[in-house]
Amino acid sequence: MPREESEGVTQSYLDLRQKTRERDRSLRDKVMSLEEAAKLVDNGASVALGGCTASRTPMAMLWALIRARKTGLTVSRSIMSTEGDLLYASGLSTHIQTSWFSQGIVWGVSKVMRAYTESKRATFEEWSHMAMGLRYRAGAMGVPFMPMRSMMGSGVVDRAPGAKTMECPFTGEQLLLVPALNPDVALIHVQRCDAYGNAQLDGLTFMDIDIAMAANKVILTTERIVSNDQIRRHPDQTKIGFFTVDAVVEVPFGSAPHECYGLYEPFYSHMDLYAQMTAKDPDKGAADYLERFHYEPKDWADYLSRIGMAELLDAQRRGSGIYDD
């Protein structure tokens, strides 16, 4: 990728520090509603999503942004599943940066992703998984790039904006440099955090800790809000610090129909329903799905009711079993 095309991919270091300096990073109550948190995301913003594939997807926050009719977001994630389809179909985003994008291997190639990208209504900017991770890490470290040893020689590198090769000044080897990714906003769903945003994660952390550090604003949704005293009893479990967090929203089953480690597994029947609805006519199927599950429900509880109590109980039974023998 020529230099002029990749300019503007990374943020200036002093701008990044200035944005951080301007944030209120004090130990203060940040609890708000989904609707209030949605106001913190501007149209056109770059947004990073925590979790991976069907795990700890910040589904409730995306649901709120879709209902708020936000538009023009550039959205990045380690791997995109059904939420990527919904970003395209709702108009929330026409530009997704990720390493893999489909509902999941067992459901095949996403028909909605195909329909939008093949007709050029939307962009799927593909990076290797490690490249996504190191882009967030560079952002978290406050450096403009990270060196790495994959992607070279492939077609992926030619289509990745801002990726460059260099000769190592120490060894003379060829290395790939990937640009820092400092999203305007990170949306991360966690098992528990306090009102200040100290988040304790169970199980797989994916790229979430780097994403929180890289972003200029962090919105946490959490299965439950716990006291600061409870956090202080086990500070070693705190993976995302309050000083990076700008909003805390309590949303039970906030990743549904995806999973939240130790609490619920993916809602498999609902995931099958989604695949069926979008199989024949992806545009209509996704629009119908959005209408029924995103626009019509009067609130998040109504959304969960429409998915169904039997599904919810089944997902919870399977999910909580991870700690059993």
């Binding site: 991976c52 991770g133 797989l204 952390t205 790229m207 780097d210 130790g262």
Partner: peptide, 27 residues
């Protein structure tokens, strides 16, 4: 597991790390 990223993958594992860390072990 339906992908390599759900909790079913972690059953009786020795260690869990971030995605970036496990890919760096490869490197």
């Amino acid at each position: 597991p339906p992908s390599t990223n759900e909790q079913r993958c972690t059953r009786r594992a020795n260690m869990l790390v971030s995605i970036t860390e496990v890919l760096l072990m490869l490197q």
